[in-house]
């Protein structure tokens, strides 16, 4: 609804705070999501996300939510679907070129962003939307993506020793081991190994 979505923009700072609490929770839940199966979760989460965000932001379920970078004004409500707006046609009164009765979505976006803590994210160049993701859950996507980034960082740390001593790593495989180490193979370390890659504390170790 138009009035509610304008309200959300006016209170962008509050919604930013809400989302900043919500996002880490979703990321923490990733191991559980994975166990249940992202495929099985997709439909119910989509229904939930669509209801909540539809009500608050007139969300169009593009599947690639950037509300945090657009002052809580959904760019898919721009008739030109701009992801980096506004266009050059904004009317003198700040209304939309295409829909004269509507406030330009991007005038709202810059205003909303100015109230937010990390409002300058609006200056980041956004890629075009991937139409094949339309209708899917952006929340689950964020959970997967952030969890994946965490894993990638851990992986990079684990590889640092091998990268610092590349010749040794090639010539003497046991000198800089990268493969999974069963707990019995680490007699001097408390057995805290867990099965998920996400939690596995396989920190790099001096060889």
């Amino acid at each position: 609804m138009y009035a509610v979505r304008r309200f959300a923009v006016r209170h962008s700072r509050f919604f930013e705070w809400v989302y900043n609490c919500f996002e880490p929770a979703m990321v923490l839940l990733d191991p559980i999501f994975r166990r249940v199966g992202y495929n099985r979760l997709e439909a119910p989460v989509v229904l939930f996300e669509k209801t909540v965000k539809g009500l608050l932001f007139d969300c169009k379920m593009c599947g690639q939510c950037v509300l945090s970078s657009t002052g809580m004004s959904c760019p898919m409500n721009c008739p030109k679907n701009l992801r980096n707006g506004p266009c050059g046609g904004v009317r003198e009164n700040g209304n939309c070129e295409v829909k004269p009765a509507m406030k330009c979505v991007w005038v709202d976006a810059w205003e909303g962003a100015s109230r937010m803590k990390s409002g300058d994210k609006i200056t980041t160049v956004q890629p075009p939307v991937d139409r094949s993701l339309e209708g899917s859950s952006s929340w689950l996507r964020v959970a997967r993506e952030m969890a994946e980034q965490k894993r990638a960082t851990k992986e990079a740390e684990r590889h640092a020793m091998a990268e610092a001593f590349p010749e040794a790593h090639l010539e003497e495989p046991a000198a800089v081991p990268l493969a999974y180490e069963p707990s019995a193979a680490r007699p001097h370390r408390e057995a805290t190994e867990s099965t998920t890659v996400f939690e596995s504390g396989s920190k790099k170790e001096g060889a």
Binding site: P79, K80, N81, L82, R83, N84, C87, V125, P127, P128
Partner: peptide, 28 residues
Amino acid sequence: LTGDGVQVGDQPGARPVFDFDSISLLRA
């Protein structure tokens, strides 16, 4: 360019595309 909306032109019934916007187009 992003481009004017189809509504101002001589064929307002056309389907607007706007797959890119001017900024994502520049980057591409």
